[in-house]
Design a protein around this nucleic acid. Structure first.
Lengths: 335, 335
DNA sequence: TTGTATGCGTTATCAT
DNA sequence: ATGATAACGCATACAA
């Protein structure tokens, strides 16, 4: 019947319907066309099983309705959530998404940018770690969590406010001496502000604090040493700990257990991100929740916004605190 | 200097280098070209910052080096792992990946298939739930976990063997009376074989068992009722439970805790998938691990294989068992 | 309102 | 070995 492996084009449809090529194009794109023509064309389309070729469209229009997302991986809960919500936000606007897992590899990040540009994407959203990433001027780029210069908008949760909120919560929950634990990239990025926010909050509330900041190569055992050093007669000198991420908090919780400290009775712990067990169950710990759907929506909005002119260099979205079992419940205090 | 927003083409490069269009094409594609020409062209490319247009290439060659992945979401740990590894496997072969999160929505699945076809993808990999999904013959498709007819290869873990392995492990670990708990789609798919495998394994080892199978709409509380009904004088009649997924196992563990049952002392629990806490930490429970990297690799391999002829209709990849704290450790038994 | 013709950027087939 | 030209499928400006 139909030729094997032959993909019909507009020309075939035009011939089948006995109309001109342009008419078919109009029908396909919903432009006004005489009713009898439209019907004949639509029948021909069904009969031949015709589908437009986005590549030909893209070539013609130099617009591909495609965006690329650069992200280290999809397994880290925060990344997987970002990925999902950006995909959804793009879909809503009828955009396709190229997923580019970079594995924190600077070279791979650069390669993916080049690939995306060659693929004529309408824009790139990236959570990247390459400080020297080269991006063509004409390719819109929105960065997550890292400032990349005035021309590139950066979207992040309000990390400073988040750190502050964590300090305030610990103070509200009765803590007297807190700790901030961080393991992080030396790279300058937005999440680094969690530290400043926390310090700020502690000072405002008269909460004393100490910090332990691990560098890239350091082992988690450093935290164990640090905490162990602050135990006297079995009692930890901290009664509140703010961890830079839920992942760190999770590891710290295990260490605390090993050291015989009870959570939240002896020491309360707050993380950052809003990670849930298995993606959709309880929170891993009491935490500062990132507004991931809003971050995703904002990224896409900024990316597709026409007037480059007034793209803000930095957008910080509000965070919230949720108890997750590692802090004393509000019912136990006078909230 | 360079015109604002103007993207150079091969023609511009040819003019700049003072050579013909075809010569530039050859240089770009690494075809033999006289050395002095090659150098001049390469210099022109650098000077103009030229990049090939994949859309024009794709239009000409009707090959796009792009594949689409249809998956419900990227947040479920199994899905996120599949997504990551398929992305990696495609990258290795220089393919780009369109991510399509379907949210278990049959209509969305179909829309994405159409989108992918219009986008002239070289193939689609799908973990889908639409039994009537329409796919053009000329679009290669590989299915994960669900058979979709003889022409479409299906890749899955060896679910039957996995169920069997779970039964054998429970028997080895001293269980006398087991339970199988499942919540699942009524849709016929490969994971359903976990049940048959488990039954088979129980029979082979003389392990008695009961089953509780929830339907789509049912609440998890049904499991609680079921388990509660099997408690007499505070003692659960089961000493081993196989859960259809780690996610179910996780919930069941919580229920068991509520019912005052100790795991693994009173009852041992085995899940399925190989899910780790926060994606990279300990296993959620003792579990049958799916070989996700192998599944991903196999999907891509089958998808891009030229000779459609000998594509097997079903490929089952071997699973392994790992203890995850919800079974008695090997050191405690005579393994 | 419908039909015709041109060009998008590339590759490949020619003749040179 | 290199240079001119046609064609991929579609959209659109223009002519009918």
């Amino acid at each position: 019947m139909k030729k094997e492996n032959y993909v019909p084009t507009m020309k075939d449809v035009a011939k089948e319907a006995g109309v001109a090529l342009g008419t078919v194009s109009k029908v396909v794109n919903g432009l006004p066309v005489g009713e009898p023509y439209r019907i004949r064309v639509e029948e021909a389309i069904k009969k031949l099983n015709y589908q437009v070729n986005s590549y030909a469209q893209g070539l013609k229009a130099s617009k591909t309705y495609t965006a690329a997302l650069l992200i280290p991986n999809t397994q880290d809960p925060f990344f997987s959530s970002i990925t999902y919500h950006i995909n959804t936000a793009l879909l809503k606007r009828n955009y396709r998404m190229l997923l580019c897992c970079t594995d924190y590899d600077s070279n791979l990040e650069q390669e993916y940018v080049i690939m995306a540009q060659q693929n004529k994407v309408d824009g790139i959203i990236g959570l990247t770690y390459n400080p020297g990433l080269k991006i063509e001027e004409q390719t819109p780029f929105v960065s997550i969590d890292r400032s990349m210069g005035a021309k590139i908008p950066c979207v992040a949760s309000d990390n400073f406010a988040g750190g502050q909120l964590a300090a305030e919560k610990l103070a509200d929950l009765g803590c007297k001496h807190a700790a901030f634990l961080r393991i992080g990239s030396s790279l300058s990025n937005e999440p680094n502000k969690r530290k400043s926010g926390f310090e700020n909050g502690c000072l405002a509330r008269g909460l004393s604090y100490e910090m332990k900041i691990l560098n890239d190569g350091d082992s988690f055992e450093e935290f164990e040493h640090f905490l162990n050093e602050h135990i006297e007669d079995g009692k930890l000198s901290f009664d509140g700990i703010f961890c830079v991420t839920d992942s760190v908090a999770y590891s710290v919780l295990k260490i605390l257990g090993k050291l015989g400290q009870r959570v939240p009775e002896d020491v309360q712990v707050i993380g950052y991100d809003g990670t849930r067990i298995l993606g959709d169950k309880e929170y891993v710990c009491s935490t500062i929740v990132q507004p991931v759907p809003d971050i995703a929506e904002m990224c896409v909005e900024l990316l597709l916004q026409e007037n480059m002119m007034q793209k803000p260099p930095l957008v910080c979205l509000p965070v919230t605190y949720v108890p997750g079992g590692t802090t004393l419940e509000p019912s136990q205090e006078q909230e």
